[in-house]
């Protein structure tokens, strides 16, 4: 039972991380209609920035706080330099150009930080378990990730649903010509949205950094998962992204935790240990294919 609770919490934590990544992607996708394969690179840069700043300041928290504006600057820079020119193009051009950005990002990281992975050391107070109940220890850091992730999700909901900026963003998603005619500076709005996406991706990257190793290409596979999430949730829908991220986080975590034992009953131990992670990854893609066959525009999507 404690194992189940622990794994459920891990699922929530992974889901929230994925949500941060997917929220930026779905905003950019929904509002600018841009397929951004380089979003995973922003995630990677967030982690590397955090690794460097943590090294400079000797404090993970300070490093993380410094990495966020750095991610924002990077996002705005890329938007102005390249991405801005892509909005009027079709999706195929987006895929190609941002694929080019991804190649550049990976080699740039190798050039600046070297080919070896990095570990970010956690401060002592984050590195010990807390006891949720007397007999249920849980890593403090993972719990902190859940809290931060939930807070950011709530903030994002407030920003999009309750503020004037959010109103512009939503209006931009449904009719960008009209909102331009009403006097909103669309160029600045798009840059802002891309910047928000970059910060969210960077935050996800730096929060994942102490759990996984910071390495080149760390964003490439998780990017595809983020795409799966926004497609399941429906492109442009933050709510859909949240729900889909939770489902995907749960499937992945629980699949990895439960499937090996299940498979071992009819496979060899080695085969089960290889097959289980592969199978839980496959389940996510099966889910997506199923959702799309059932609802071709995702759970909460309206755009075709």
């Amino acid at each position: 039972m404690t194992l189940l609770i622990e794994q459920t919490l891990n699922g929530v934590q992974l889901g929230l991380l994925m949500f941060l990544l997917a929220a930026g992607l779905t905003l950019v996708f929904g509002i600018m209609d841009l397929v951004n394969l380089a979003h995973g690179s922003l995630y990677m840069f967030g982690a590397y920035f955090c690794a460097t700043f943590t090294g400079w300041t000797d404090s993970f928290v300070l490093g993380a706080l410094l990495a966020l504006p750095a991610s924002l600057l990077l996002g705005v820079f890329v938007e102005i330099l390249v991405v801005r020119r892509l909005y009027r193009r079709d999706h195929l051009d987006h895929v190609l150009a941002t694929f080019g950005l991804l190649l550049i990002a990976n080699d740039l990281v190798r050039l600046v930080w070297g080919p070896d992975g990095r570990r970010i050391p956690l401060p002592a107070w984050l590195n010990q378990p807390i006891f949720l109940t007397p007999d249920l220890p849980y890593p403090t850091y993972r719990f902190a990730v859940i809290l931060v992730g939930a807070a950011v999700a709530l903030f994002l909901y407030w920003l999009v649903a309750r503020t004037r900026t959010g109103m512009w963003i939503r209006a931009g998603a449904s009719n960008r010509t009209m909102i331009g005619a009403l006097g909103v500076n669309i160029e600045a709005l798009f840059t802002l949205v891309f910047g928000i996406g970059a910060v969210l991706a960077g935050l996800a990257g730096l929060m994942a950094a102490p759990i996984v190793t910071v390495s080149i290409g760390m964003g490439d596979n998780i990017l595809i998962l983020a795409f799966v999430i926004i497609v399941i949730g429906g492109i442009g829908s933050i709510k859909g992204a949240f729900i889909a991220a939770m489902i995907v986080g749960m499937i992945d975590t629980l699949g990895r935790a439960m499937l090996p034992d299940l498979l071992k009953s009819f496979l060899s131990v080695a085969a089960a240990n290889t097959a289980a992670p592969a199978l839980s990854s496959m389940m996510i893609y099966l889910l997506m294919a199923g959702v799309l066959v059932w609802r071709p525009t995702g759970l909460f999507g309206a755009r075709g």
């Binding site: 999706h91 497609v231 492109i235 893609y285 997506m288 294919a289 799309l292 071709p296 525009t297 075709g304």
Partner: peptide, 17 residues
């Protein structure tokens, strides 16, 4: 059965599968 971006993504999903 799907169009546009969803087609890009569903072919990607099957390939990942």
């Amino acid at each position: 059965r799907t169009r546009g971006v969803y087609f890009i993504m569903i072919t990607l999903a099957f390939a990942q599968l």
